[in-house]
């Protein structure tokens, strides 16, 4: 998994690529929670190039969301591939996360 963090119109976008599993989740957690710790909001997470996610990856985002909510921040997930969206839906987390179709949709929301 690769993580690229960039600025778009003054807002942070975390672009992920590859597979997020038990091996990669600690790295994701470190990067995500560092941004949450800095109260980076809104934080847009781009899933477009993510090919796989397991429950440890999902749990990492739940933890990130809770950290964001603690100070009123926003965590926005965008461009989630259908196979991964199905897991969010199954776990009823599609109702919990703010999900957008693209980075621009999220930035303009």
């Amino acid at each position: 998994m690769k993580i690229e963090i960039s600025d778009h119109k003054g807002k942070k976008v975390m672009a992920l690529s590859g597979e997020i599993d038990m091996h990669e989740s600690p790295y994701l957690r470190k990067e995500l929670m560092a941004l949450v710790g800095k109260k980076t909001t809104p934080l847009v997470v781009d899933f477009q190039a993510v090919s796989y996610i397991d429950s440890s990856g999902i749990a990492t985002f739940v933890e990130g969301l809770k950290g964001m909510m603690a100070f009123g921040g926003k965590l926005q997930l965008v461009s989630i591939p259908a196979g991964i969206m199905e897991i969010f839906s199954f776990s009823k987390l599609d109702k919990v996360f703010e999900i957008h179709g693209s980075v621009d949709d999220a930035l303009n929301s």
């Binding site: 397991d54 429950s55 999902i58 749990a59 990492t60 739940v62 933890e63 809770k66 897991i87 199954f90 776990s91 009823k92 987390l93 919990v96």
Partner: peptide, 17 residues
């Protein structure tokens, strides 16, 4: 419980489904 939103506890549901 899938309605209990918290980190962890999801894996077993993904196996059983």
């Amino acid at each position: 419980d899938l309605d209990d939103v918290r980190p962890g506890g999801l894996g077993i549901h993904l196996i059983k489904r």
